[in-house]
Amino acid sequence: MANERVLLVDDEPEFTEALSQRMESRGVEVDTAANGREALERVKGKSYDAVILDLFMPEMDGMETLRQLLATSPGLQVILLTAHATLETGVEAIKLGAADFLEKPAEIQQLMERIRQAKAGKMLLVEKQAEEKIKGILQTKWW
């Protein structure tokens, strides 16, 4: 199976650098973005299995970034990873469509598991979309 491709979005450069190294040593391809705008640009040009997103960032906060990411890429698997987790923000993020919500510092094994789950979720979605497309074609052709 191909490596997982992840976009890590966080405004703490030391954090992104260290976590990127840890994920890369586990076979994950990692791109980074320092804020929401950069993240939106990145997802336009590349397909990711998961986006790991911080909540508090300059320019555009995590919730707004989540909204815009899902508006432009429906089905994108977004995992919020934040040092400022509250039950309310967790519920709001899941309601908005986040795949998961984790508190920093997360255990690397836990994070890797969530990334794998996100990839599986994405694959399932792609399969469903393909199935729907095939069904549509079959119906229009009267097969």
């Binding site: 030391e14 260290a18 190294q21 400022h84």
Partner: peptide
Amino acid sequence: SHEVRNVLSVIGEYAGLLDDL
């Protein structure tokens, strides 16, 4: 509190890197 949690998160990742090494 946010700033300190950010600092601890970074140290947590460095500790993880040490563990990996």
